[in-house]
Simulated assay, not measured.
Amino acid sequence: MIRKTARIALAATALCAFAAEAYAVEWNVSVWGKRRAFTEHVEKLAELVAQKTNGEFTLNISYGGLSKNRENLDGISIGAFEMAQFCAGYHRDKNPTITVLELPFLGVSTLEQEVAVSNAVYAHPAVQKDLARWNAKLLMPSPMPQYNLAGVGDAPTGLDSFKGMRVRATGGIGEAFRAVGAVPTSVTATEAYSALESGVVDAVAFAQHAHLSYGTIDIAKWWTENLNPGTVNCPVVVNIDAYEALSPEHRAALDSSIEPAIQHYLANYGKLLDRWEAVLKEKGVQKVRLPESELQAFRDKAAAPIRDAWIAQMSAQGIPAQELYDLVQETLAKTR
């Protein structure tokens, strides 16, 4: 009787251990570079999910160990990993709908507005269908402030200064600089420092965190503080099959952690912006502020023409381009 009871207890223990092991979920997350303001919401999401599930659901974040940044969407599509971050401008043909968020001079002026317009676009059925082609579900944005240039050589004094300038700029920002005679190139963020150092490019368009993280501000001689042509859109996505396979409890833990992760990101980025001026002074970088007349000329050359061309091109592909653009503007109006 004692031996029988022991066997039953042992079997029950083994069954419980197996169930616990089977219930544990581990996701691999592909990002790139190093931990920085751009990835803080992913880090916070992992922390919150683990806390809410008592460690039963974990996100293992890899900085470049799983995939190249331009291949993260492909990795998601084949289930090579469950979550990833990517930028729309890296492969515009693969995610045409969200490139509306990379059009120049949209009028976004704060990170909170960037979150609002991104979430509105991500929720549109045409956008969800677009990303579903890659088995990807849009989870959250990676809001960034307006891009500006850090460069070497002579500092720009007006639009004429950009003629022939080789600029690292992707998406709509690249098209904006092309409109004023610059030569945009879409080298990846991780290649930007070496491109600037070796003279492959004369200037790099980044948000402040990226100029810091990738070291471009360390070799720059000048920085444009008020060009503000636009920004890039870099969503965090999850593999649809992996998301749907989650238990209701794990899915709730993930979904409920998105908003606090974004709020953490915004607070952290705000601290970075607060010390940006000190960084420029410390590194001896000249601040370049173009006259309003030159900025308006930039907008005249780049905003409407690029927007109209985008709408025509996307509409020809069956994408509700005008509807998506209007959605951005309507959301901005409500947010303001």
Rank of each mutant, 00 (worst) to 15 (best):
M1L: 08
M1V: 07
R3G: 02
A9H: 08
A9F: 10
C16Q: 08
A17N: 02
A17T: 15
A17V: 15
A19R: 11
A20M: 09
A20V: 13
A22Y: 04
A24F: 03
V25G: 01
V29W: 06
S30W: 05
E40I: 02
A46G: 14
A50R: 13
Q51T: 12
Q51F: 06
N54H: 12
G55V: 07
E56P: 01
F57I: 09
I61V: 15
G64A: 10
G64N: 11
L66I: 11
L66H: 07
K68Q: 13
N69E: 13
R70Q: 12
R70L: 10
E71D: 13
N72L: 03
N72Q: 11
L73W: 06
G75M: 05
E82Q: 15
E82M: 06
C87G: 14
G89D: 11
Y90W: 13
R92T: 11
K94I: 02
T97M: 06
L106I: 15
L111T: 11
E112H: 10
E112P: 03
E112V: 08
E114H: 12
V115K: 10
V115T: 12
H124C: 07
K129W: 01
D130M: 08
L131W: 14
A132F: 07
A132K: 14
L139G: 06
L139I: 15
P143F: 10
M144S: 11
N148C: 04
N148T: 10
N148G: 13
A150T: 04
G151W: 00
V152S: 02
V152Y: 01
V152F: 00
G153P: 02
G153E: 01
T157R: 14
F162A: 05
M165C: 05
R166K: 15
A169R: 01
G171C: 09
I173V: 15
A176H: 02
R178T: 02
A179C: 04
V180W: 00
G181S: 04
A182K: 01
V183E: 06
V183S: 04
P184S: 09
T185H: 06
V187Q: 08
T188N: 08
A192G: 07
S194N: 10
A195P: 04
G199H: 07
G199Q: 05
V201N: 02
D202H: 11
A203D: 02
F206H: 07
F206G: 00
A210C: 01
A210D: 15
A220W: 00
K221N: 10
W223L: 08
W223I: 06
T224P: 00
T231I: 02
T231K: 03
N233R: 08
V236P: 02
V238S: 03
I240E: 07
A242P: 03
A252V: 03
A253N: 06
A267R: 11
K271G: 02
R275S: 12
V279E: 14
K281E: 11
K283L: 07
K283I: 09
Q286I: 03
L290I: 08
S293H: 09
E294H: 00
Q296E: 15
A297Y: 04
K301E: 00
K301S: 00
A302Q: 10
A303I: 00
I311G: 04
A316W: 01
I319P: 07
E323T: 13
Y325I: 10
D326V: 08
E330D: 13
L332C: 05
K334V: 09
T335P: 01
R336P: 01
R336D: 04
